[in-house]
Nucleic acid binder design. Structure first.
Length: 225
DNA sequence: GCGACAG
DNA sequence: ATCTTGTCGC
């Protein structure tokens, strides 16, 4: 695997790319149809060796059975800088997605979409770059504020940034911390929440994320072995 | 100016 | 992200 030739290598370039892509995000659109294909993507790092491994796992949106999976290993493309996560994760993710045998109807990202300082988080960036429908499901509130959602599964509260609802804190399981859902591309916020709950029958995180997380860790271990 | 900050 | 044992609970 390699990093795209024109990939930003420094912060100012990355900020310029975000500014250019941001107006292209669409925050409306339907949840996937039952029986369509949804993908989960995730990335694991060995920073000491500068190696990154990405995984894409395709599930049936209904049975949640795994239909296909792929991995990609390569050099780390960008340092971790809050607000610029996409530049670190996307090269490997794009390659893993391209290796799937079918194009997903929606991609679930580990992180944020419109909930981002400049409204172009990882999920939105991936969506605009590929044209795919995407959502972001993050595990922590980042810099945003929220009230605790109700205790029952499905309860939610707005995730706020500068007086604007940029996502929702969603309880996917009773007695467990909420996850933070935001629009990536070509989907509405309510539909993104609905999709997240449909992908979360048993655990805190969506099955897509859990499968991709497990697979990219194995791919990394195999790559550095 | 300093700290916090998706993964 | 990653470093990491035992332990509480379904």
């Amino acid at each position: 695997m390699s990093v795209p030739a024109d990939w930003p290598v420094e912060e100012a370039e990355a900020l310029a790319v975000q500014k250019r892509l941001r107006p292209l995000v669409s925050a409306t659109g339907p949840a996937p149809a039952v029986g369509s294909l949804v993908a989960g993507v995730d990335v694991a790092y060995d920073d000491e060796r500068g190696v990154v491994a990405a995984a894409a796992v395709l599930l049936d949106y209904g049975t949640l059975e795994v239909v296909d999976e792929s991995t990609a290993v390569g050099p780390v493309a960008f340092p971790y800088l809050p607000g610029l996560l996409a530049f670190r994760e996307l090269p490997a993710v794009l390659e893993a997605l391209a290796a799937l045998q079918h194009e997903p109807d929606l991609v679930v990202c580990d992180g944020y979409g419109l909930a981002h300082p400049r409204r172009l988080g990882l999920a939105s960036h991936l969506g605009v770059h590929t044209g795919l429908r995407t959502i972001g499901v993050a595990k922590t509130p980042f810099t945003f504020t929220h009230q605790a959602p109700g205790p029952e599964r499905g309860a939610w509260s707005p995730l706020m940034d500068a007086g604007e609802e940029v996502g929702r804190a969603v309880r996917t399981r009773q007695g467990v911390k909420p996850v933070f859902v935001s629009v990536g591309h070509r989907i509405g916020l309510a539909e993104a929440v609905e999709t997240t709950l449909a992908l979360t029958p048993s655990f805190r995180l969506p099955e897509t994320t859990r499968r991709a997380d497990s697979l990219c860790r194995r791919a990394l271990a195999a790559a550095v072995a």
